[in-house]
């Protein structure tokens, strides 16, 4: 898990002006997104959170298309749908609720 600093000049672990680099949908990645959702307030922060949740939705979607792992499929499908709902909550300006929803998948 890493953060992609994007010019704010701040290097705090949880800085909502940083975009979380989403390379997988591991608990670590989800936890970092949840932490960022919890402190996001500005328009720009919500855009970054939406982009991260879009990425989670995208890669879980790709996984579901490709996988033959029946056991994991149900869990990933729930996360896929949860990421969709969290994404829409962020779009509605409700990042805290999105954080609560996403934390259910940790």
């Amino acid at each position: 898990m890493e953060l992609e600093a994007n010019g704010s000049g701040v290097s705090d672990a949880v800085n909502p002006a940083h975009i979380v680099a989403v390379r997988d949908f591991s608990p670590d990645t989800l936890k970092t997104i949840v932490e960022h959702l919890e402190v996001s307030t500005a328009f720009e922060h919500l855009v970054y959170r939406e982009a991260e949740l879009d990425a989670i939705w995208s890669i879980t979607g790709f996984f579901l298309t490709e996988t033959s792992d029946i056991v994991r499929q149900d869990d990933v499908m729930r996360l896929h749908e949860g990421a969709h709902r969290a994404h829409d909550l962020v779009g509605e300006g409700r990042p805290r609720e999105a954080a609560i929803l996403l934390s259910m998948f940790l």
């Binding site: 970054y48 990425a55 779009g91």
Partner: peptide
């Protein structure tokens, strides 16, 4: 569509227009 974090600008523009 399947967006990623490289689509941040597109997401921002849509959100701004929606707002």
């Amino acid at each position: 569509e399947r967006l990623g974090t490289s689509d941040t600008a597109i997401i921002a523009m849509r959100r701004l227009l929606l707002q």
